[in-house]
Design a protein around this nucleic acid. Structure first.
Lengths: 224, 224
DNA sequence: GAATATATTGCCTATTGCGCAATATATGGT
DNA sequence: ACCATATATTGCGCAATAGGCAATATATTC
């Protein structure tokens, strides 16, 4: 685990944190499994907690609702993508960096290139077909958008809080969501990567990238 | 019934429907007022119902949660925008039509051109500063995206369920959200219209418009 | 005005979110 | 290894919520 990119050193992860993460994952996993089995609305917190081997009270210590537990995985993926943008080499073009960052959480799960696993598809269908879960997901997306916006801002030498960066990051996250939506709908399951590249390509084809200093585009960062 | 645009005739609105709409509006209004006054989380359904002059049970008949009641107004605005796209003249360029449609619900409330009213701003801040409400709003946005996508599809002669239309409608709704976000944050309150035109203009140059059938005349839609 | 359809309400129950205090487990210093 | 401290888990209990059911009030249709 020697870190080639010289980023934050691997965390020693105290036992306590390990346990915490383990139970959190266990709860999330139990929630997803039960929801896929019985349907979201026929699963009670009591059931999830029992399946995960904890008390209902402990469930509440980790998640404030069952929707939060269900979307936990996906929220982690999106957050992964957001921070991955910062880990991209600085000399890589913006759109390549964005595409690779968005793909980062999927490449590790091998759903990017190969035909996606049925479980992954099932989980995504679960998440993307219920509007309550979609709403829950947005809450996480909103945080990640900030992360994206600032990463983009740093990369372009712009204010991450300005109009341009916020629009761009919002567009990227939204396009990602829609692409995943289409991805899990695809009747002959297809790998995610090409879809994502196509969608981002569509977005990037003409999205103007303002020069950091030399203002050919005339628009400043918009914030006053 | 004679309708210049040939769309659904003006509804006679039976008394029952009138009452229904009235109570629904009353509840939503009460919810917003109380929430602005005391803060969202210190308002109970009981309070809202009392303020609106109905029972708590009736509240539940109209809204399945207080968040839904709070976002009702905004949901109506977004829906208004979505259907307004269909009412735009067919010969208007796509991006102009989109901009006007998105502005439609605001022009009537005079917040588009003039300096926005403090109440409107306060309501928007209420809605956009709470992540739970943001999530609630997304549920409505998801429906409207379909509306947008199909309207765009009809306009361009494309399949409203295809990748392009879905991406475009998602981008439009998202950009709108972000713009409203910036709008209510603006310290010297500024009219919404210019902001929206700027944001959509930014987006419009990002999305090339494919030729519907005749491969010519293509893409010089980059209006500003 | 009578017959029918729909809306409002009260009553009741299952579920949830979370504060509080007791207990179990991990951590850090000696 | 042992003890003091910090954190996690759990049970208990309460306030709030979502929604089914049936009775009553109000619209609509004929």
């Amino acid at each position: 685990m020697t870190n080639p990119s010289g980023q934050p050193a691997k965390k020693p992860l105290s036992l306590r944190e390990r346990n915490r993460i383990a139970t959190r994952d266990a709860i999330a996993e139990a929630a997803i499994q039960l929801a896929m089995l019985r349907g979201i609305h026929d699963v009670r917190i009591e059931d999830i907690a029992a399946e995960a081997g904890v008390s209902t009270r402990t469930f509440s210590n980790y998640f404030s609702s069952k929707y939060e537990a269900l979307t936990c995985r996906h929220a982690q993926r999106m957050h992964h993508a957001a921070v991955a943008l910062r880990d991209q080499p600085a000399d890589k073009p913006l759109w390549s960096a964005i595409a690779d960052a968005v793909l980062a959480p999927w490449q590790s799960s091998a759903a990017g290139l190969d035909t996606p696993s049925p479980e992954t598809l099932a989980e995504l269908r679960l998440l993307f077909c219920d509007s309550a879960l979609q709403g829950e997901i947005l809450k996480d997306v909103l945080n990640d958008r900030n992360e994206f916006a600032h990463a983009i801002g740093d990369r372009l030498g712009l204010d991450g809080r300005g109009l341009y960066c916020r629009l761009l990051s919002a567009a990227v996250t939204t396009v990602t969501q829609v692409t995943i939506d289409i991805f899990h709908e695809a009747d002959p399951p297809a790998p995610l990567l090409p879809l994502l590249r196509e969608a981002l390509g569509l977005l990037s084809s003409a999205f103007p990238i303002p020069a950091p200093e030399t203002g050919a585009a005339g628009k400043s960062e918009g914030k006053e």
